[in-house]
């Protein structure tokens, strides 16, 4: 398979001298197209930092990062914005929907920045919302939706530009177990349709749904392709 994400000796250091924090310390990680991958690890182990680097929201202090075989270190702000818009989709724990916009308008937003014509935008946004089971909530404002529904709108927004990689940092962190299952079902379908899904989670049951578990500790990949049956032991060490 073709690698989509390649981290080579990636370091991310915050601050300098004695107070320096090595959020990522020599991380090597390759993820291939179509993988469904969970990133786990204790709090402060560098999971979110890794996701931000992968999502081109942050640049590594040193090391190289290839996204779809392109070294993103050389790209300008506009080029990175374009990559985030076209190749990546983000889902956050706190949904981050714009409160003044309806569900449909929120989902249309990435296409506004992508230069998609207005008519096509509406059609595709409605399509994406239908795909996450919200075809009857197009004109609701975020405050008129439940947490699970809001997260589904956010997922629709993440996939509406047909990304190659879906990045989700604790997407079920704010949801109850029932809605967690709904969201995971959607992720499963998206992955089945060919989208690479990378998800940070603290919950073993969530991680079990994926095909690959990467375990972080102290800014390093401690275990890769961790077997679900070894999860309990990893958590305690």
């Amino acid at each position: 398979m073709k690698p989509i994400i390649q981290l080579e000796h990636v370091n991310k250091t915050y601050g300098s001298g004695e107070t320096a924090v090595h959020a990522l310390a020599d991380v090597n990680l390759t993820i291939e197209v179509g993988e469904y991958c969970a990133i786990m690890g204790p709090s402060g182990s560098g999971k979110s930092t890794a996701m931000n680097v992968i999502g081109c929201l942050d640049r590594p202090t040193s090391g190289r990062y290839f996204l779809d075989e392109v070294d993103v270190a050389n790209l300008s702000d506009v080029e990175l914005a374009h990559i985030r818009n076209r190749k990546l989709g983000f889902v956050f724990q706190q949904f981050h929907l714009l409160p003044q916009l309806s569900a449909l308008e929120n989902v249309m937003l990435p296409m506004v920045y992508g230069g998609v014509p207005n008519k096509e935008r509406r059609e595709r946004a409605a399509e994406a919302l239908t795909r996450v089971g919200l075809s009857n909530r197009l004109n609701n404002k975020p405050t008129q939706l439940s947490g699970g529904q809001q997260q589904r709108v956010a997922i629709a927004r993440a996939i509406v530009n047909r990304p190659v990689v879906l990045l989700a940092d604790e997407p079920t962190g704010a949801l109850d177990s029932h809605t967690t299952q709904e969201v995971l079902a959607i992720f499963g379908e998206l992955n089945a349709s060919g989208i690479t899904v990378i998800m940070v989670t603290h919950e073993s049951e969530v991680a079990r749904k994926t095909n690959r578990i990467v375990w972080f500790r102290d800014g390093q990949v401690l275990h890769d392709r961790l077997m679900p049956e070894d999860l309990a032991q990893a958590v305690t060490t």
Partner: peptide
């Protein structure tokens, strides 16, 4: 700030 961060994440450039 959150709105701005979100807009950047979904593809807004600095000039946007």
């Amino acid at each position: 700030t959150q709105e701005i961060g979100l807009r950047k994440a979904i593809g807004a450039s600095q000039s946007d």
